[in-house]
Amino acid sequence: MTPYGSFTFFFILVILLAPTVILGLRGRRFHAYNMFVTVIALGIIFASSLQQAVALIGFTIWQVSLIKSYIHYRKKRNSDLVFYLAVVLSILPLAMSKLLPYFSTITFIGFLGISYLTFKGTQLVMETRDGLIKEDLPITRLLYFILFFPTISSGPIDRYRRFVKDLDAQISGEQYKLYLYEGINKIFRGFLYKYIIGYSINYYVISKLKFIAHSPLEHHLYYMYAYSLYLFFDFAGYSAFAIGVSYVMGIKSPENFNKPFISRNIKDFWNRWHMSLSFWFRDYVYMRFIFWMTKKKWIKNRNTLSNLGYILLFLLMGIWHGLEAQYIIYGLYHALLMVAYNAFERFNKKHKWWPQNKFTHALSVFMTFHFICFGFYIFSGQLFHKGV
């Protein structure tokens, strides 16, 4: 059963989380029960596919064993080689699930949510290396963090230390009322975004473009803008569901969207769009690349180094979506935008060519919106379809 994909799923959630709500309103602790709910919910989600269920169990054993082993190792030693090996082994199941279908018929490795579970596991290895995680992690907390069911399929990607703070927080009945109110509000926003606005755009515009558009150019333009809006409302709706259910369970999962279509430049956009993913790539790919290259002193020019970091970051993000041409080109397109904006920032800082006022702000938002929409048009693959 797909999370948040049917009203049946929400009906099951109401039944499963009713005791959580009762305990929360009474100021009682409910995380032990929520761990039990997570097991039941995962069983329901993966009940229709034994292959995916087995893959999830195998992946979890692999990831937890790796994390626990590296934490134990890190207490005594700190070899670069062992760290790199641990990161590679953490990412290996995801890489195999992404790459093997292109070269063979093997599909038993992948399962719903493998990407986001991998991001969590790799994050723990990296933070252990940095000394942010020093103590051995209780197995129940580690499993609960990795397998937290509200965010399993598409995030948001939480951070372990932030997650644990919520687990340890003492929530009174009055405080839980605020959690519950916020959670229900987000869930209803999810229904508005995904099942009303997103559905309407898809049904009344995208699926009927052949009747609306009167030329190939109109078809491409209408599709570009409609798809961009649909993608936002569908994904933001899902995120609202995931975050809302998390709040009901006493966990404040991070926000994933912050009005991305009013971004004033491409950097601002990536601080607003799919934030948990973009921040993950920023912290664990871009920043580490910059630090590593600076330490090695292979590239001394900061601007060149920053631009190479952007190319690496967005190329990996594109490949993460898939090896199809549209995903790789989408990644390179955003890398190009970031490099170009970097150059523009340096030029404007020196020459003060672009003043800061209401008019230039509005124009920046207008221009950025169109660049973003064209990027989503590339991402959709429609650019590569013939006979449109």
Rank of each mutant, 00 (worst) to 15 (best):
T2F: 14
T2S: 15
Y4D: 08
T20I: 04
I22P: 10
L23S: 14
L25I: 07
H31N: 01
M35T: 13
T38I: 08
A47Y: 08
S48C: 05
L50M: 01
V54P: 13
G58A: 07
W62C: 02
H72K: 13
K75F: 00
V88Y: 05
L89G: 05
L89A: 01
K98Y: 15
P101T: 12
G110T: 04
Q123C: 13
D136N: 12
L137K: 11
L142C: 03
I146R: 03
T151G: 08
T151R: 15
S154Q: 05
I157K: 01
D158G: 11
K165R: 07
K165H: 03
D166C: 04
D168N: 12
Q170P: 04
Q170W: 09
Y176C: 09
I184W: 02
Y195A: 01
Y195D: 05
I201N: 10
I206L: 09
I206K: 07
I206T: 07
I212V: 00
H220T: 15
M224N: 08
Y225C: 11
Y227Q: 07
L231V: 11
D234R: 01
Y238R: 06
S239P: 03
S239R: 04
A242R: 05
I251W: 04
N256I: 01
N258T: 06
N258E: 10
F261K: 03
N265V: 12
I266V: 15
I266D: 10
S278N: 07
F279V: 10
R282D: 14
R288S: 05
F291V: 03
M293S: 01
K300Y: 12
R302W: 14
N303M: 15
L323R: 00
I328F: 06
Y330V: 13
G331A: 00
L332Y: 14
M338E: 05
M338R: 02
A340D: 10
F344N: 06
R346Y: 10
N348A: 03
M367L: 09
M367T: 10
F374M: 12
F376S: 01
S380M: 03
G381W: 13
F384G: 00
K386P: 02
